[in-house]
Nucleic acid binder design. Structure first.
Lengths: 120, 120
DNA sequence: CCATATACCTATTTAGTCTAGGCGTGTTGA
DNA sequence: TCAACACGCCTAGACTAAATAGGTATATGG
């Protein structure tokens, strides 16, 4: 996942936050099943272009989650008449999501404590 | 950096947030120069045990930052009569910190937008 | 004198992301 | 008609940060 660079279009933006991708994907699928390409666009749009998920990151992540039983996939024909692989979250994935969100929040809490100016 | 596991003491906690370590170190050094071992304890204490920085992560990170000119180091004798390598932030490091914090915040903003429930 | 805490460090492994492609198909418009 | 483009799937390899699992040395306390 990269923060989308606003000025230059081609320069490689450094990455941050491995692990967050999985959470965002699981949370999104928790709301509604979706195919990969749609996930890319969904995340970009909902983040108001702050984030851009590379397909080269997303698909391997989906494979990992499939293998781990966190999501399941089904080939369908989309309304736009294309073969799409639609992913949905499994009960195991939902449980995992809860855990990861909680870990995520604790981590953020910890970081913000460290970054907060010391109180006299 | 690992979230400190509260129940089991030995199991490996998964990592999150590569990149955050650098920010926390630079911000801490921005407040006051400090040696490595002290940074480990500082971060753990200020995060109220939510985070635990492994020395095997910290020292390589400090080396990277040294090499990149973000911090500089000096050998001293501590009040406890030990040879310590005290790190301080450079002007370049301070500039870098600002950038990284801003990137960090944008990333968080993006993630929270994606994770926030859709509005009807 | 020995255990422990302090303090530094590195080599190797692990894991996720990015880069940089490739492939096939439906739609659009010149 | 047919070429370009958007859609939609995917992978191999490079890169990088972090964790693991060590090692070394010295001061202090019991």
């Amino acid at each position: 996942m990269t923060p989308k660079s606003k000025s230059s279009s081609h320069s490689a933006a450094r990455d941050l936050f491995p692990g967050a991708l999985e959470i965002m994907v699981l949370q999104t699928l928790h709301w509604q099943p979706m195919h990969g390409y749609a996930l890319v666009q969904h995340i970009q749009q909902r983040s108001r272009d702050l984030l851009q998920v590379e397909e080269g990151s997303l698909y391997p992540a989906l494979q990992r989650m499939l293998k781990a039983g966190l999501v399941e996939a089904e080939w369908k024909i989309s309304p736009t008449n294309r073969r799409v692989r639609t992913y949905s979250i499994t009960p195991k994935g939902a449980k995992h999501l809860e855990l990861e969100v909680s870990r995520f929040e604790q981590m953020l809490e910890g970081i913000s404590l460290v970054l907060a100016p010391a109180k006299g």
